[in-house]
Amino acid sequence: METETNQVAGVCVDAGGYALGMPQLCADWMPNQIFWLIITLIAIFFVLSRIALPRIGAVLAERSGTITNDIAAAEDYRNKAAQAEAAYEQALADARTEAQAIIATAKADIQAELDIELQKADAEIAAKTAESEAAIAEIRESSVKSITAVAKDTAKELVLAMGGTADAKTITAAVTARMKG
């Protein structure tokens, strides 16, 4: 059992280099595995805790920060757009109101002008009417006078022709009385 190769390879392998029993249970090899495992774990731990994990954590935090900022910025832009729309609507409404006001003013102006013109025309018409009425009255009056004169003359002549004598006073009075009646 105790051969040269055995001495060199240890107690857990036979002369041919094959495992005797389970290599897992070979107590001679365990300190080696445990020692190197601890070294490896410490190395991994330092690599992770000193370099990798803080870096990845920072990247993830930065990313979530960027996303949050971008969402906030988007929200901001949306609010600005809404404000711009509101301002536009306001401007439109203002313009409409102003237009309405301008139309009303123009209408009022035109109405006023129209009224003045109408008044002027009315006044002119009234003046013309009064003038015409005066002329008509004058004509009527002068015609009555003429008729009276003609009637007096005619009456005088008739009286003379009848052979009567008549003074002017009596005839005039008689004609006037007749004219009235």
Binding site: A9, A19, G21, P23, W29, I34, F35
Partner: peptide, 19 residues
Amino acid sequence: LDQFIVKPAFGDGVVNWYT
């Protein structure tokens, strides 16, 4: 089970805790 044998990576010899 031979695949689980622990052996020195460089050369032959005894497997010490530091090997």
